[in-house]
């Protein structure tokens, strides 16, 4: 695929994530579904960029906010929708719900919502692949909160010790639930020094709102991890458009005190908007791009409601 094709395919995946999640949000509210829901709207470039920068044979392992990771990896859309709404046709037979995504057919090997749990599990998956002599990577997605767990440092040491092909992706949206990272970290906290100098792992930090930057960084880290037999950390600065949990995507939350009025940054740094600008640089006009987006929105609205209309919320 040339650059333009890659960007257009990424656009489709990002629209897919956004439309499916927007519809989930709407129907959750309407149907009074009280299950946990952590939307990844705003962070689509992280999931999509990593999926494009890695290979189909690589494994993904997710966290509480993993609809985007699952969809970017090509997970079955209907089975995800069923799962989120508690239907037993879901990817975890309705046992898991929104926080447990699974599609082994595309190497999406699960997601768990306990902060820090996913890291060592993913290192075990990476070790299993190494023992089976596969030449692939296991990618685990965590938030900046999880990177404060002891298991983050333990896993970096342990996976480094065993030379495991593991890529840890930190989606740093600045907040653990509603707690600002500056309230949680020592002044001058330095990821780069700790990870590179202290734990001898590869580290790269890029703008997680920009698909191209995430894509390039993932691709380079993948190569390096497999070549050097060392662990990698990809640190993505990103923006969570939704509340920490719940169906509401609220400007009230975006403008709230704990977020220091992040609303204007969110408007400016919408990952789909940034991707559109990148596509324009390949020679396409904005009108052409908007036409494509319009078609994609219709396509994924239809896909969502085709599945959703088969669910009887009250019955399930």
């Amino acid at each position: 695929m040339n650059k333009k094709e890659i960007l257009l395919k990424a656009l489709e995946d990002m629209i897919k994530i956004r439309i499916i999640e927007e519809n989930i949000s709407k129907e959750f509210k309407k149907n009074k579904v009280l299950s946990f829901l952590h939307l990844s709207i705003g962070q689509e470039a992280c999931a999509t960029g990593v999926a494009f920068g890695t290979k189909a044979q690589d494994n993904f392992f997710g966290n509480h906010r993993s609809h985007g990771h699952y969809l970017a990896k090509g997970g079955n859309i209907s089975r995800m929708i069923y799962e989120v709404f508690g239907d037993n046709r879901g990817c975890c037979s309705g046992h898991g719900g929104s926080m447990h995504m699974l599609d082994k057919n595309v190497n999406f090997l699960g997601s768990v919502p306990i902060l820090g749990s996913s890291l060592p599990i993913a290192s075990g998956i990476a070790m299993s692949e190494k023992l089976k002599k596969k030449n692939n990577l296991t990618i685990v997605f965590i938030g900046d909160g999880s990177a404060e767990e002891g298991s983050f440092y333990e896993t970096l040491n342990m996976a480094g010790l065993y030379k495991l092909p593991l890529l840890i992706v930190i989606e740093d949206n600045k907040y653990a639930v509603e707690s600002d990272k500056f309230k949680r970290k020592v002044n001058g906290y330095d990821f780069k020094s700790i990870i590179e100098k202290g734990l001898k792992a590869n580290y790269n930090r890029v703008d997680g709102q920009d698909f191209l930057k995430v894509f390039d960084a993932s691709k380079k880290l993948r190569k390096k991890i497999l070549k050097d037999k060392s662990v990698g950390v990809l640190h993505l600065d990103c923006l969570r458009f939704s509340k920490h949990s719940g169906a509401e995507i609220s400007t009230k939350d975006q403008k709230s005190k704990y977020r220091k009025n992040e609303y204007f940054e969110i408007i400016k740094k919408d990952p789909i908007k940034i991707l559109k600008q990148n596509i324009i640089r390949t020679g396409m006009s904005l009108i052409q791009i908007e036409k494509i987006i319009n078609k994609l929105q219709k396509k994924y609205n239809k896909i969502f409601y085709t599945t959703f209309n088969k669910i009887n919320i009250k019955k399930v």
Partner: peptide, 11 residues
């Protein structure tokens, strides 16, 4: 690192 070595085993 009991937590992480156990997680490794789970994986």
């Amino acid at each position: 690192s009991e937590l992480s070595s156990t997680g490794l085993v789970v994986g």
